[in-house]
């Protein structure tokens, strides 16, 4: 599609010309974004979690192998019955051991688990969000572009069908079929959460394709694919980022719900599993230091995604 050009400089020039306004847009978008304190806060939380996810060892007070009273392996004793009886242990700062958020009933540090679990939540949120965007956006684009044709009709009927399937129970069926691994949960979430993207992008495309520049591209003989991906898609991308952020938040909460129902991969470290474990072992109302942090962590990450998403919506769709 893009015609070959022999001259390097002119390529560069052309590229600059082409990208200049986009950079400009990005820059002004960024400055508008930073006007939203909410968005900045969201971004800050997000960055903290990314750092936790990438370098948990730097932030966590212990390794995941650490056990209260015994310290890091290899251990030179076993827990005594009296010691076991004190678990889950409330927050302790050096005496008898250091665990700022206390321990769970197995003697692992809650803060350590919290930090090591960030990776899983990040992975699920981003992967599921990205997947559902990758499915929903192109379908929405195609559906909108071919609005009122059989293509649109087919896609929309398919969306109708998927809408008729309740999200969580359907997810449970999918997980039951494919097994309880994190990957399967991500796929399951994506399969059920692209619908919104598709509908919104379709609506946006429907209005965009009436715009004059699309019309002129059509007159100039550009192919459908080119129009969709070159002319329309860049304009819906910001919107799809907004939805990606929301999908990511939704995915994180969905995984927590699955974990609550006992349908998440329990061998992985995740906040949902931490909450599930407190329920399994029966300390829901006895160990607030174990109950509250994972929920807060989940809430903050989901909120960070929402904050970023809604701030971006404001940026892309300035109202005032």
């Amino acid at each position: 599609m893009a015609t070959e050009r022999s001259d390097d400089r002119s390529t560069l020039e052309a590229a600059r010309k082409r990208w200049e306004p986009r950079f400009e847009r990005l820059r002004s978008g960024w400055s508008r974004f930073t006007e939203h304190r909410m968005g900045v806060v969201g971004l800050f939380i997000f960055v903290v979690y990314v750092l936790w996810a990438l370098f948990p060892g730097v932030f966590a007070p212990h390794s995941t192998q650490w056990v209260a009273y015994l310290g890091e392996p290899p251990f030179d004793a076993r827990l005594s019955a009296e010691q076991i009886e004190t678990l889950p242990h409330p927050p302790a700062f050096g005496d008898p051991f250091f665990a700022p958020l206390g321990t769970n009933s197995d003697g692992q540090g809650v803060l350590t688990l919290l930090i090591y679990s960030a990776y899983n939540a990040m992975y699920i949120g981003l992967a599921a969000g990205l997947l559902s965007t990758l499915v929903g956006v192109p379908l929405g684009l195609i559906s909108g572009f071919y609005g009122d044709t059989w293509i649109d009709e087919t896609i929309q009927r398919f969306v109708d069908i998927m809408y008729g399937l309740p999200f969580l129970p359907f997810l449970i069926v999918l997980v039951a079929i494919r097994g309880m691994s994190t990957t399967n949960i991500i796929i399951g979430i994506a399969v059920t959460s692209w619908l919104n993207n598709c509908i919104v992008i379709r609506g946006e495309t429907l209005s965009l394709k009436e715009r004059s520049y699309v019309e002129s591209a059509k007159v100039a003989g550009a192919s459908d694919t080119r129009i969709i991906f070159r002319h329309i898609m860049p304009n819906v991308l910001p919107l799809s980022f907004v939805y990606l952020a929301q999908d990511a938040a939704g995915a994180i909460l969905a995984q927590a719900s699955l974990a609550y129902l006992g349908l998440a991969d329990f061998t992985s470290l995740s906040w949902g599993i931490m909450l599930r474990n407190i329920q399994n072992s029966g300390y829901v109302f006895q160990a607030w230091w174990w109950l509250i942090p994972p929920g807060l962590a989940l809430m903050l990450l989901a909120a960070a995604f929402y904050f970023i998403g809604f701030s971006m919506e404001d940026v892309t769709n300035p109202q005032q």
Binding site: V41, A249, L253, S257, V284, L291, I292, G295, A303, Y306
Partner: peptide, 20 residues
């Protein structure tokens, strides 16, 4: 922003807190 925070809570978790 505070309503978004509420929206981000796992439902069973907030239910536990209320029961508690």
């Amino acid at each position: 922003s505070s309503s978004l925070l509420m929206y981000s809570m796992p439902s069973f978790w907030i239910a536990w807190l209320f029961i508690w």
